[in-house]
Each structure stands twice: as structure tokens, then as C-alpha cells.
């Protein structure tokens, strides 16, 4: 083999790495762009406060929210609420996502299972999440199990559909290759189906966790005295708007961080996937 050719290819790969650095830099610029709106809103908010059109009780100043956050964090109350909510998210997510994964896998592998279960699940998906609540309270009461079920329903759908899509969409070429290399049964599943479906499954996982985090706040509407949702509801009852807004900020921030972390994990796991490189969350 001639060395020139190798050198040429080495060059191409170096170029790819350089291009990646360039896109990274552009991404930082894009991220700064994303900060403009929140900062502008903060200024507008402070401006409205300065106009003194409303009482401080209704239109709390931004700094007061920060103060409340610092205070709540200082007493440990905030951390306790967050940890309890996260625990609920985790339980509900594990139940919902694992059953969604299993069902999606079965539906993807067998057309018969898909034909018998698919339409029913799609119909169920049309029921808005919060419409389940009266039913859940009737069946499971108001305790932790009811919350887990509520969150699990939310976590279930993205997982079942994305897993199904990934598993049923294994390109024909890979199935042919599997036959050539004699990958059968478990080996076929492990070496062809799951890797090929992995990008789709991970997307499902990320959506699923995101929805769990959204629904935990709903689940904490009833029958509990803990969690970030409860913190906000009690804040509303006592007319502490600063606590309510602090809750919103915390929920948004944690959701954002979870999504970003999962995106990092996704990029790590999917190093082989071209479309992941430089992709945005």
C-alpha cells in the first residue's frame, strides 16, 4: 500500500477534527444568543416593579425571588423537596420506561404483537395525562403508589413508541448482514437490533425522563406534604408568590440540566453515530 494514500486519509480525519472545533465555537455563540431573552425579561420584570403599578405582594421583585431561593436552600427545605421529587420521578420513570421499552421491543420484533396492541396503545395515548388523575385516585388512593403510577403513565408513551420505531426500523441491509454472519435469536437482538435501535431508544429515554419530571409536579397536587410541587402549591395558598416563582425556576433549571446531562450521555454512547456529532439538545 502506498503511504501517500494513507497520509491523505490521515489529513481528511484531521480536517474533520478541526471542523468540529470550529462548530464548537459557533455553538458557544449560539448559546450566548439564547441568554438574551431571559436577561431582557429580567430587566422588563424589574422595570415593571420600579413603576410601582402593583403591590410588592403581587409583583415581587426578582431579587426577592433570589433571596427566597437562597433562604430555602439555606434551611435545607429546598434540597429536601427536590430530593423527594427526584425520588418520585425515578420510581415512576423506572416503572413506565421499562414497561414501555419491553412492550416497544416486542411490538417492534413481532408484527402480530404490534397489530394486536398498537392501535389500543395509540388510542390510550390520546387521553391527556391529567385526565387519568381522577381514575388513579379512585383506584390507588392518594399515596405514593398513585403518584408513581401517574408519572409512569407519562414516562411510558415516549419509550414505547421510540423503542418500537427503532426496533422495527432496523435497515434491511443490516438484517441481510445478520443472516450472512449467522446472527440469530439473542445474538441478532444483541448485535444488530439493539445497536441499530439505540439512537431511537435513547431519544425515548430522554423524552421519558423529561415528561416524568414535568408530571411529578402534577402528582404532588394531591395527598402529599413534600416535593417541589407541594412547595409551590403551599406557596400559592399562603400567597407567597416568591416561593411559587422560585419553584418554577428550580423546576426549569433541573429539567434543563437533566436534559443536558442525558444529551452528554447520549453523545458518549453514540460516538459511532454521524448524526449525533454536533447535534443540539
Amino acid at each position: 500500500m502506498d503511504l501517500d494514500h494513507k497520509g491523505l486519509n490521515g489529513q481528511i480525519i484531521n480536517d474533520q477534527i478541526m471542523n468540529k472545533n470550529i462548530t464548537d465555537r459557533f455553538q458557544w455563540k449560539d448559546r450566548l444568543l439564547g441568554l438574551i431573552l431571559p436577561v431582557a425579561l429580567l430587566f422588563a420584570w424589574q422595570g415593571l416593579v420600579n413603576l410601582k403599578l402593583y403591590s410588592d405582594l403581587i409583583l415581587v421583585p426578582p431579587l426577592k425571588v433570589v433571596g427566597t431561593l437562597v433562604y430555602l436552600a439555606g434551611t435545607g427545605e429546598l434540597t429536601t423537596h427536590i430530593l423527594i421529587s427526584l425520588q418520585r420521578v425515578l420510581t415512576g420513570f423506572l416503572i413506565g420506561a421499562s414497561s414501555g421499552f419491553l412492550l416497544g421491543l416486542l411490538m417492534g420484533l413481532s408484527a402480530t404483537i404490534n397489530r394486536s396492541l398498537g392501535p389500543f396503545i395509540k388510542a390510550l395515548k390520546q387521553v391527556p395525562e391529567f385526565a387519568w388523575m381522577p381514575m388513579i385516585i379512585l383506584v390507588f388512593g392518594m399515596d405514593e403508589l398513585a403518584k408513581d403510577v401517574f408519572i409512569a403513565i407519562g414516562a411510558f408513551y415516549p419509550m414505547v413508541f421510540n423503542t418500537y420505531q427503532g426496533v422495527s426500523g432496523v435497515p434491511h441491509k443490516y438484517q441481510e448482514l445478520a443472516r450472512v454472519f449467522d446472527f440469530k435469536n439473542i445474538r441478532f437482538l444483541q448485535k444488530v437490533v439493539l445497536p441499530s435501535a439505540l439512537p431511537s431508544i435513547l431519544t425515548g429515554l430522554r423524552l421519558s425522563i423529561g415528561l416524568s419530571w414535568m408530571f411529578v409536579v402534577g402528582a404532588e397536587l394531591f395527598g402529599t406534604e413534600s416535593g417541589i410541587g407541594y412547595m409551590m402549591y403551599s406557596g400559592r395558598e399562603m400567597f407567597q408568590i416568591d416561593v411559587v416563582i422560585a419553584g418554577l425556576v428550580v423546576i426549569g433549571a433541573i429539567g434543563f440540566i437533566m436534559n443536558a446531562l442525558l444529551k452528554v450521555v447520549e453523545n458518549r454512547v453514540l460516538v459511532w453515530n454521524v448524526s449525533v456529532e454536533g447535534g443540539q439538545g
Binding site: K173, L177, V180, P195, L198, W272, N273, V274
Partner: peptide
């Protein structure tokens, strides 16, 4: 043994 025209490698390997 079979060598295909395109898309013949497993991209995750």
C-alpha cells in the same frame, strides 16, 4: 463470504 456495494459495515462497530 459476501461483500455488498454500500452501507455494508455496522456503523456502531
Amino acid at each position: 463470504g459476501y461483500v455488498f456495494q454500500q452501507y455494508a459495515l455496522f456503523p456502531w462497530r
